[in-house]
Design a protein around this nucleic acid. Structure first.
Lengths: 324, 324
DNA sequence: CTCCAATATTAAAGCGATTTCATAAACTTA
DNA sequence: TAAGTTTATGAAATCGCTTTAATATTGGAG
């Protein structure tokens, strides 16, 4: 691989001049510029970006740290994040933590060592202390403190809308289904919105949650269908679309039909192809907007600007499917 | 950020010694080692991986170049690739080309400049010439030449199996549905296997393909249902699961039920959650195995070894769902 | 034609590590 | 204890680039 020096030698100039040609600095005579360009072409020289980043002490690599790219919500998110990053001249490094705290920390360490320009993280850990102060971070769906800006959907309103829509669809008694995680997250607000609206409407409701550490589909739903409060429920708001879909499947096994016997609303809006049936009624997160917003905020931080808000909540929408 | 020099100064030794401590070189006295380690701890020093990579003239970054991470098949693939890379101490850079040739070349250029250790690509372009010779590449599903090793599923056998299964399910006249791409790909063998087996079995069949440049769901299927050969078809083998799912939807609109009137088999096996209905009968690609195999082969190339084969075809399986 | 300002160019320093080479210290052995 | 051998250490070179500071060239103005 030819280096700057090789080009300089061939063109009969100093390396500094070649550098200036490459970077379009003004102080180069046209004649010299042409000589250099000729040499560049002849040697088929391409600048070594690694050396450049090293010298400049900066990188254009942004890391996306998430539980699993396999999950449809995250893969959509990642798609838009990569797209927006590319538009801005940045590159994306992908890290699947599997939602495991140790792996999150392990990756955070690695990213520190590798001096990435910034991190967008969907994490379960309390990462605030584990990350070097000088590396900008955007957290999605989890708010830590003012050091780490948070981007999330308007979970609270989403919860309220979900309940309203269940009532509108004819539900008389409703349930909230969720998986609790050890760490506090903005997702909790979905529940709060749901509860507040239920109280405001004076409708009977139950909250069913189980910890993710003992997570197992069958167990989760068996326990749900076992509890006595479960009877007469005619509306279900599930934490996520996946959970909603699993519920519908399980309910069918118990002879409960959707939407005839029970109306179901999910959260996320991950549906994007014809393989999904039934089409879920859901609270749609504006994934694209969240993704682009995260990138934009991160880049602002990278440029050293300070952001106006600590949390950015993007509005959600109800999207009607076949389950309400 | 403290550097090697800072540590060396504090410990009262030379930078070389510190480097040796960090890299566990044998020739360091225990006493010195401890002094250095103390200094490292005191300064909270972490080695700068960027500088290290630069000096060593090597990187541990592998790029995954694919059309869209949003697609469920690719997101599953990416998940396992990242996992395997991480196990081997490598990092993953994600590049969505959107299937656009110009963007593929653009990314290839960028990866060249950034001196990634290797590339795993799912590309539409003929990338063979566009990539510097010294950067190892694995191509998935597309075979270029011996420079670029190809990993794919056993498409040919998959096509044969699909036809056999359609017959077994009672189909009398069958159709192959596909999207043709400008570039030749191993995927073509799905069709070849299908045809060969149809001939062997003496069953009537048609091939329906349209170019991806004029791709549009509605148009595609309208044309299909318009052609006269379409009548009396009782078995359909679609190129991909997504296409199969779209076919099922469209067929329903025309009053054709699956699997009562027509048996349908897809290809991929992307189904991984309860949102997918009906559960598709499909030729399952061993995604995990393909992913890990790709990584392993790539790393072998990176280490300078030569591979025995030019193409690695991983066996597929029929997975019965509700559509046959 | 001379002198000074503006412009163009080069040589060298530096980014943070690894590694070679020469030297110093520590051990052996006679 | 002297000489020889092994082991430990530090100084310096190097990777490919950017940038500063010093120098060379050019162009006007007087």
């Amino acid at each position: 691989m030819p280096s700057l020096k090789d080009v300089a030698d061939l063109a009969g100039v100093g390396v500094g001049t070649v550098s200036r040609v490459i970077n379009n600095h003004p102080n180069v005579r046209n004649e010299t510029r042409e000589k250099v360009n000729a040499a560049i072409k002849q040697l088929n020289y391409i600048p070594n970006e690694v050396a450049r980043n090293f010298k400049m002490q900066k990188s254009t690599m942004v890391a996306l740290l998430l539980p699993s790219i396999w999950h449809p919500f995250f893969s959509e998110l990642a798609y838009y994040i990569e797209d927006e990053l590319d538009r801005e001249g940045y590159k994306l490094m992908l890290c699947n933590s599997g939602g495991r705290p140790d792996k999150e920390l392990y990756y955070l360490d690695m990213l520190n060592q590798n001096k990435v320009a910034g991190i967008i993280g969907i994490t379960y850990n309390d990462i605030e202390d584990s990350v070097s102060t000088d590396i900008p971070i955007i957290s999605i769906d989890r708010h830590f403190g003012k050091k780490i800006t948070c981007v999330t959907s308007d979970n609270y309103t989403g919860g309220r809308i979900a309940l309203k829509e269940l009532i509108k669809a004819g539900a008389k008694k409703v349930a909230y289904l969720g998986i609790t995680s050890s760490a506090y997250s903005e997702v909790e607000l979905r529940k709060k919105g749901f509860i507040d609206e239920a109280k405001a409407q004076g409708i009977e409701y139950i909250i069913y949650e189980e910890n993710d550490t003992v997570y197992n589909d069958d167990e989760y739903f068996e326990n749900f269908f076992k509890i006595k409060e479960h009877r007469h429920i005619s509306g279900v708001f599930a934490n996520t679309d996946l959970l909603a879909a699993k519920y519908i499947d399980k309910a069918k096994q118990y002879g409960t039909r959707t939407p005839e016997d029970v109306k179901v609303i999910g959260y996320d809006g991950i549906q994007d192809n014809k393989l999904f049936h039934p089409i879920l009624s859901t609270i749609r997160q504006p994934v694209e907007e969240m993704a682009r917003m995260s990138v934009k905020l991160l880049l602002r931080k990278i440029e050293g600007k300070t952001l106006e808000q600590e949390i950015y909540r993007i509005p959600v929408m109800f999207r009607e499917g076949e389950t309400t």
